[in-house]
Amino acid sequence: MFQSFVFVEESSIITAITVITFLFLAYLGVSEIAGKHLQYSKFWNVNANSGSSSSNFLQGKMSSKLGMFILYAPACFMGFASFFMYPDGGTRFMLLQSAVTIHFFKRVLEVLFVHNYSGGMILGSVLLISSSYFMVAAAMICIQHLSLQYTEPEIDLKSIGVLIFLVGIIGNFYHHYLLSKLRGSKEKGYKIPQGGLFSMVICPHYLFEILGFVGISFISQTSFSFGCAVGVALYLSARSNVTRKWYLSKFENFPKNVKALVPFVF
């Protein structure tokens, strides 16, 4: 059944890359639950001094704006570069290139023109996330290019994938915009988010980001893209869960009916 809507890739290397990437993303999710957070946003200074002296360089701090730009710029560059590296690949390949590029280009634009920042970021987390995004973008595009030699899946999901991707990226942007309007230009403290789906879940931007990756996986229909979508969902589910716990600990009036990620469910 699975093979009817996924490219059958006869490559042990692609299989290994897929498994390693999935396990890495799943590990990040487990680490979040265990209290070892990637140090950005609300958790930017958690465990900042827990490393040994040999890791002091990676514990260096930078501004959130610079750190977030470094997070997304390399993957965005990879997306744009792919159009010159692989100019001819057919409709599915072009849609995949476009979706990956739009996803990261949107994030770069948000960093520069939408988000308001407080706190900072830890260099180690910046380098880890940035390199991960770059490798995922590069691998997704390269594996898609390699799949051109294989037979198309029996069930074509790319049209519904485009629709899901657009819902994801629009919903993600909208809730990022709402977050940016919570504070005034000189305010640094956190507030309980309002508007949109924030009345139902504390991380609707994560929910729509997951939908964006699901849409990309439907466009791509490679085992790697599906593995990435599931891995991202696991990580962001864990991240949203600890974010909800953080709000509960910081705000006595935080609504108990507001879930972490999925309305009424989780």
Rank of each mutant, 00 (worst) to 15 (best):
L95S: 10
L182H: 06
S31C: 11
V46I: 00
G195M: 03
S237L: 04
T21L: 05
T91N: 15
K191H: 07
A75F: 07
F83V: 14
C76T: 03
V162P: 09
A139V: 08
S118N: 12
F2I: 10
Q97M: 10
H205K: 06
S225N: 10
K186G: 00
A233H: 10
L96C: 12
F218M: 14
S223D: 03
L157F: 14
W44R: 00
V19R: 00
L148C: 10
S199W: 06
F83D: 15
Y235G: 01
L234T: 03
I70D: 02
P87W: 13
Y174L: 11
Y27F: 00
K158G: 09
C142R: 12
F24T: 14
R244T: 12
K61L: 01
S98F: 14
F105W: 08
V100D: 08
F173M: 02
E209Q: 07
G195W: 08
C142K: 10
L157H: 13
T21G: 07
F24D: 06
M200E: 15
A34Q: 13
L261N: 12
F22Y: 03
R92Q: 13
N56P: 00
I210Y: 12
R107A: 05
T91P: 10
P87D: 14
P193A: 03
I129Y: 07
H115Q: 09
S249F: 11
Q3S: 11
K181A: 03
M1C: 03
I143C: 04
M200F: 15
M68P: 02
I17Q: 08
A238K: 01
S240A: 15
A48Y: 04
F80E: 06
S98M: 14
F266L: 15
I219T: 14
S223K: 08
S63Y: 01
I210G: 09
I102G: 05
L163A: 14
V232H: 01
L71P: 00
H205G: 03
K186I: 01
V111D: 02
K186Q: 03
S147L: 02
A138K: 05
Y86W: 13
E152P: 08
Q3G: 07
E154P: 00
G227K: 01
A48I: 07
I141E: 13
E209Y: 03
L38F: 01
M135N: 14
S53T: 08
F80W: 12
K259I: 10
I129L: 03
N116I: 05
N257H: 13
Y247S: 11
N56I: 00
F24Q: 04
A229C: 06
S41D: 07
Y133H: 15
S180A: 12
S220L: 05
F213W: 13
F213C: 03
H175A: 02
E9I: 09
P153H: 12
Q149E: 14
N45F: 00
K245T: 07
F264N: 15
H37G: 00
I160T: 11
G120K: 02
I169N: 12
S55C: 05
V8M: 02
G90Q: 13
G35N: 02
N253M: 06
